[in-house]
Design a protein around this nucleic acid. Structure first.
Lengths: 227, 227
DNA sequence: ATTCTTATGAACAAACTGTGAACTTAAAAA
DNA sequence: TTTTTAAGTTCACAGTTTGTTCATAAGAAT
């Protein structure tokens, strides 16, 4: 992506400034925040194409900021972690960061990772915040699904899985594709996990709709079929 | 891609062997080289669908191998980098590697990345997602074939066989060619298997269409004839 | 008629999915 | 904090579906 907008949340102003200048020189549009809360505020106000987050932040940790940013949609995140803090890396990746980089780092490396992440984060259509299929309404904003009069809140993963499939209706995805698209690029888990989430979705969503169906395509994967 | 051919260039025979065995167990066809020059030679002689390259290699660095492989065409590359060797990572990414993984790594993670890269590099845009022949529509995206108002899901192999033949309409293929193209070049089975699948397709698809026909070419093979 | 090729039915083997339950991790509450 | 609850993940078993092989019948060519 060219001239992408990057949000950097980092309390060390030295680092922050250097990164900002370097990235601007590279043609990116950069905005800075110096603590977690204002990071989130700034993100909600201005948005961004990619966020670079320090983990140690005043007021709200980088994890939390990351989590909230991920909630809002497909904005990729790169975490800045302290050297040797493996636990941090792990946690960062598990929380859904797309990559991490260990301090101290070279600007050159950060730049390479930014490019890589931007390249990977396919310019998927901006997701609508709600979708309707016959009697079902999927509301991303509130993590709520309503079917007829029934309304329920789904856990994050189930919601993300459902909305991804629904947002790409009538298209089959393999378990691996779903892991990549829903769980994240650097998630390395058992593909049967998908099965379990599908099963739970089927338990919760009445399966007698004439408009839509969570369908298994044997030997391939799953699709959200809309008639 | 199924049973893809992977070239691994790694001078540490321990690592190389473990990777080879693990990937073969996963159904890939793996060939190994232990230095850069023979890596390139092997690539030019046999080709591959994906290359896994160590960076530190005798005779020719992984970068160089990567660069040359990229020159030859669209073969994706995953680089193996030493921990903390940031310069390496950067160079690897900039040189056009599709991904990198830091040693020591878990086979599970390497496998996931291989799958992800192969998936990304076999661009679905290349294949049309649906084909229409008169009253028949073959939809790869949803794994559905519809004929008139009738719509059905075919099992994977039947679907693949049908869409291959349909995608190459009016061309005869021998059973061996079909085994290679549809089943994969590392499949060694009875060519009668093709007959059985053709038979099942004929059972399922109404054979009275005036537009198309699954035809036997006696002594040669099969073709999907379109009028 | 003889020989080679293809069609078909049936049996077997392999691969895949659904499911319950144990287990681990994260979030929420006390 | 610590405790409690919820969410997410892994695993194993059972039941199905699909894929393959094989034996035999039917069809084509010479």
């Amino acid at each position: 992506m060219d001239g992408a907008k990057i949000l950097i949340v980092e309390d060390d102003k030295n680092i922050s400034t250097i990164v900002k200048m370097y990235l601007e020189k590279e043609g990116y549009s950069v905005s800075s925040a110096y603590d977690g809360e204002s990071g989130i505020r700034q993100f909600e106000r201005e948005g961004c194409d990619l966020a670079v987050l320090d983990i140690m932040l005043p007021k709200m940790s980088g994890y939390e900021v990351c989590r909230r940013i991920r909630e809002k949609g497909g904005v990729p995140v790169i975490m800045l972690t302290a050297r040797g803090d493996t636990a941090d890396k792990v946690a960062g990746l598990e929380i859904g960061a797309d990559d991490y980089i260990v301090k101290p780092f070279e600007m050159k490396e950060l730049l390479a990772r930014i490019k890589a992440v931007l390249r990977r984060s396919s310019p998927q259509e901006a997701k609508p915040h709600s979708m309707v299929f016959g009697d079902m309404k999927i509301d991303l904003a509130s993590y709520t699904v309503s079917i007829g009069k029934l309304s329920m809140e789904l856990p994050p993963k189930e919601m993300e899985l459902l909305s991804f499939l629904a947002g790409n209706k009538n298209t089959v995805f393999t378990r691996e594709q779903l892991l990549e698209k829903v769980w994240g690029y650097n998630y390395f888990g058992d593909s049967r996990t998908v099965d379990v989430h599908i099963k739970r979705l089927r338990e919760k969503l009445p399966q007698d709709s004439s408009h839509w169906q969570l369908k298994t395509v044997w030997g391939v994967g799953y699709k959200f079929e809309v008639k």
